[in-house]
Amino acid sequence: LSALAVLEQRDGKLNQGSLSAVTAAAKLGGPIHAFIAGSNVKAVAEEAAKVEGVEKIIAVENGAYDKGLPENYAPLLVENIKKGGYTHILASATAFGKNLMPRVAALLDSQQISDITAVESENTFVRPIYAGNAIATVESTDPIKIITVRGTAFAPAAVGSGSATVEDGVDPKVESTTEWVSEDLAKSDRPDLSTAEKVVSGGRGLKSKEEFDKIMLPLADSLGAAVGASRAAVDSGYADNSLQVGQTGKVVAPQLYLAVGISGAIQHLAGMKDSKVIAAINKDPEAPIFQVADVGLVGDLFEKVPELTEKLKSA
């Protein structure tokens, strides 16, 4: 058994979220190597070398891998997996991991195990299905196991006193058939939604983008929270799609999840029901969100939320 954790970098910085893969790999019990590729990869590799529990960093210096395009990244990974003889390949279920790993699995003729929430043994894993309405325990028979890891179930491994060696990986230099053109990322000074300790999330009840911003943003700031949204709010244009919490959006598990004007469809609950404390404000006393909320307040959000924001600020 030997595991390879696939790490991500952006502009020469290690993506902390990708370190969930190391945490999951540690549950397997064997040696852990980590993989990183891109331009000026040396600094990132040195940072990754300090991650607890990692023995070796395999680094490939090549700007062609900066955008994580699966058309060249998948063959790159396959060559390094073969060279290192790894039995378990793990990556966080981020946009990068979800896009890349199934392609790697197909090239290795392996049936990927997606979005695991627990490691039972070296070949048995737990993962949610049906939007988390059922939990499946599955056993893999493939010699090389390709795994994506749910970040809320495995906290990112700490960058600390590790002292992994750094080694150059092989680079097959496959041309990508896709070309990266541009990106448009939401800029925010608030905490990152996926990893925030507190999340305030708004739904259809907010009624417009103006109201969403006017009501939710001050509430978020009074708590130091990240802002999330239901699919209904995103579809209606009240909030950016990158804020969507749910089965097909972000999965979050903060210390506090405060749902405002969200009824609580099963697809939404799938994305937040592992939060430590759930609170809800909704005018409909029958809203399903109250069935999972530790504390619920029935009332008009346009009145209750500003009052709450004021009280939190003055507290």
């Binding site: 939990i135 499946a136 056993e139 893999s140 028979t141 493939d142 069935q291 530790d294 029935v298």
Partner: peptide
Amino acid sequence: RLKTIKVTEPPPRQGGGK
């Protein structure tokens, strides 16, 4: 390639009242 060992209900979450 994947054998399903078992499928279970997730642990229920109890609403804590209002």
